[in-house]
Write a protein that binds this DNA or RNA. Structure first.
Lengths: 109, 109
DNA sequence: ATTATAGGATACCAATTGGTGTTGTGTCAG
DNA sequence: CTGACACAACACCAATTGGTATCCTATAAT
């Protein structure tokens, strides 16, 4: 029962706009404590903390305690999975809609 | 109140694994009716239909009625937004963790 | 020592999500 | 015409999500 709940889908982690903003903030600041992140949002500290937990479970952020504050920093590596996934489908928009439509026209004759 | 609910975040659309499987199935089959898609899943037809609606709202699939069946096909173009988003962060995993750790070491001295 | 700050831990809540079953309608086949 | 099929449209439900407020501990500043 005491399993690690460290596994979280990267896709669901980046699904939330708040989480994407957090990723962006962390990308331009190297390392930030919770408080400094919270001020950028209109929601409370607890909510931001929850989002950070989800990002942590997806491996997208790392945290370390420094004195009384917990500093968060970005770990972009898991985003590679997203890139790989979407790269597979890039061929479907580079060989364009036009060709697809042609095929469908033919089929209907 | 009768606004079009056509706007749906692409990020949330691809967050669900079922939806990603649907995208994959459609990518290799050009065009498929709901029934042919449903047989690949252990859930009911209604559930699959709902997922397809979400994909439609994100612009990721298009549908057309052919006789008594509704055929769905992939429209990969909106995935470009994902690619653009993730491409921005690719620099954070190419200039690697090592460099980041170096910076943090220095900071602590 | 006292007080203020940073944040973890809970408990709680409303809204959304992901699924179900049912019903109704248009279409294809005998 | 009749029955089977493909699907949309609902109504409904449990679990999850995204947020809140409250309480508590640890650290920092005076």
């Amino acid at each position: 029962m005491s399993e690690n709940k460290l596994s979280r889908d990267v896709f669901t982690a980046i699904a939330d706009p708040t989480r994407r903003r957090l990723i962006h903030l962390l990308s331009e600041a190297e390392e930030l404590p919770l408080h400094d992140l919270t001020v950028h949002f209109s929601m409370g500290r607890t909510a931001v903390s929850k989002h950070l937990t989800i990002l942590k479970e997806a491996g997208l952020v790392l945290d370390r305690k420094v004195g009384r504050e917990t500093r968060f920093r970005l770990n972009a590596a898991p985003l590679r999975e997203i890139q790989d996934w979407v790269a597979f489908y890039s061929k479907y928009w580079s060989m364009n809609m036009m060709r697809l439509n042609e095929l469908l026209e033919e089929e209907e004759t």
